[in-house]
Design a protein around this nucleic acid. Structure first.
Length: 191
DNA sequence: TGCCCGATTAACT
DNA sequence: GTTAATCGGGCAA
């Protein structure tokens, strides 16, 4: 098992890293799968948590790249982000959906269901299935319990507007694996 | 200090 | 299609 980052986080913008994550494998505590949907955010973006500056919650975003930023969403769910460059720009990639491949029984038990299709199809569901909580905020992505492996073959990537936001809705910063059955929502087909 | 809203989800009608 | 659950932050008073 590699102990180093196989995805390059340094000297690359969040919009270079985000599409590179599609098709990569993310494991946490030995369970996980292939990333099929992510979204990009950064501090000049009114939709981002970092837009109004650092707070105790989002301070990890203002640190170096290659770390996990985990926050509570709607007081109920946890959401996982990867911090990106440049340092201090508070850029991050939100992990929105995974195609589950490793440790399905454990993930199913945590989620309390049998339908693999919606096991990790949404940011809150990803964290519930992988067992990620605030305790994992600020962990580096290149050491256990995290394991991140770059994709080994080319994939077709689609883009579109981000989901669940009311500001800067026009920015096409959502990236997905084309035709994946595990997306949180389908991408609008190109016209 | 109090009020409103949000990078969501599941359980309703 | 709608709504409740529920925590942290921004902003007005």
């Amino acid at each position: 098992m590699p102990k180093h980052l196989t995805i390059a986080f340094f000297n690359r913008s969040v919009h270079e890293v985000a599409p590179d994550l599609i098709g990569a494998t993310l494991l946490f505590g030995g369970v996980g799968g292939r990333l099929v949907e992510v979204e990009a955010y950064h501090h000049t973006d009114p939709a981002a948590h970092s837009f109004h500056g650092p707070t105790p919650r989002n301070v990890v975003m203002f640190g170096p790249p290659g770390y996990a930023y985990v926050y509570r969403s709607y007081g109920i769910h946890w959401c996982l982000n990867f911090v990106c460059e440049p340092k201090g720009s508070a850029a991050a990639v939100l992990i929105r959906a995974i195609e589950p491949t490793v440790g399905l029984p454990r993930m199913r038990r945590r989620r309390g269901l049998s339908d693999v299709r919606i096991l990790c199809s949404g940011p809150g569901r990803v964290c519930q299935a992988l067992g990620i909580t605030r305790a994992d905020n600020g962990l580096t992505l290149d050491e256990p319990p995290f394991e991140l492996l770059a994709r080994t073959s080319e994939v077709d990537i689609v883009t579109g507007p981000r989901i669940g936001i009311t500001k800067a809705v026009e920015k096409p910063w959502r990236y997905g694996l084309k035709d994946s059955r595990f997306l949180s929502k389908p991408f609008r087909t190109a016209t």
